[in-house]
Design a protein around this nucleic acid. Structure first.
Lengths: 210, 210
DNA sequence: GTCTATACACCGATAGAC
DNA sequence: GTCTATCGGTGTATAGAC
């Protein structure tokens, strides 16, 4: 038996190695694409042979799973930080909230693909890794409810709208800012429909920003 | 040299074999998933060995490319047929047009993944296969312009909105009809924002269909 | 426990006989 | 055109060194 300090040190070291592997996986995904990730490449980057990774992860998908959980946890943290500094005007708050998600998804393509799409053929996130994702979604729903939008359908439409703009960005204008510029207009459109008050005395805009 | 009739017969036979291969690929994609397609399985289904497929397609991605082109061509035909029977009211026409695309995308998951998403790691459609897709999009843009919507940005938002609902359907309610029910509400939302006249004397709905 | 060496089954793709 | 044989590459399993 090991005494407690040794057990802690070993556990720490194990966790550090896992983090190192996940970090290497992210680096390769950003350089070559999420699906191009191979165990041999990941192993080489941390100074191992491919089979050695199985001492730390049960499978390749388990690495994807750790990446998935990490990404959603980071987004959850960023959202919690954001919520402390939201404008009190409902429409402005909705815009900032939506832009936060949009920016996060647009900032890192492989991360967005892993978090929000199903581009890895066999991969499905574990319940533990999925947990922060459902927390974020439930929290967003609650926040929208607090703005006075009681319909779950209207919330679903907002999610679809922002998600659709993100997809269009990555498909048609990656690295550009065309769809970022459409985001406010799109959320205004939604806010008008669900009855959120206008941001300023002027009537809701019919065109994009002048 | 062959005389013309023989050349035609051979070309016909070649084309028939290609169609047979593509059809087998669709069948496997529907049964096992688009990404799970293997050359050995496709070949077995048409009574061949895998390498023989290379007599008809230059690569596995060339088969995906043929499927891509076929899917978009079929959609283009279905849209042309639809346009003969659109209601003359702008908002009703927009709804029917949008629902047509939504239904087509929801009806066949692997087809939608191939047409509108990038789920096959190395695959990019050839210009020839992509041509019907751009024709469909340009035609849709022209139709929306004819409804009186002159802003390209508003058209882009409509596309993102419908595409987002399709993605949400496949992710959260495959086989269900929740997002199909949200479609009219979403398009109404967009139609209100771009200034399309209401469908009936009643004011634009605030809630989903009563 | 951690890592390596080896091996297996499967993949897309190619070469060459028929 | 279709075949067999084979290549390099993949994820993964396992035996065994340390």
């Amino acid at each position: 038996m090991l005494d407690a300090p040794n057990r802690d040190r070993n556990a720490e070291r194990r966790e550090a190695t896992r983090r190192e592997i996940v970090e290497a996986a992210w680096a390769i995904a950003r350089e070559s694409g999420l699906a191009e990730l191979t165990l041999r490449d990941v192993a080489a980057r941390v100074g191992m042979r491919a089979p050695s990774l199985y001492s730390h992860f049960a499978s390749k998908n388990a690495i994807y799973d750790a990446m998935f959980g990490q990404a959603w946890s980071e987004y959850e943290s960023s959202v919690l930080a954001l919520e402390g500094a939201l404008p009190q005007h409902p429409r402005a708050a909705a815009k900032q909230y939506g832009r936060h998600f949009f920016d996060f998804a647009v900032d890192d393509l492989p991360r967005h693909q892993l978090m929000n799409q199903r581009v890895i053929p066999g991969f499905e996130p574990s319940p533990e890794s999925y947990a922060p994702a459902v927390r974020v979604l439930e929290r967003a729903a609650a926040n929208v409810r607090e703005l006075g939008v009681t319909s779950e359908d209207d919330f679903a439409i907002l999610i679809a709208l922002i998600g659709g703009l993100i997809n269009q960005h990555h498909a048609n204008d990656p690295g550009g800012d065309r769809y970022a510029g459409l985001l406010d207009r799109a959320i205004d459109m939604w806010a008008d429909a669900v009855g959120l008050p206008a941001e300023d005395p002027a009537p809701p805009s019919r065109k994009s920003a002048p």
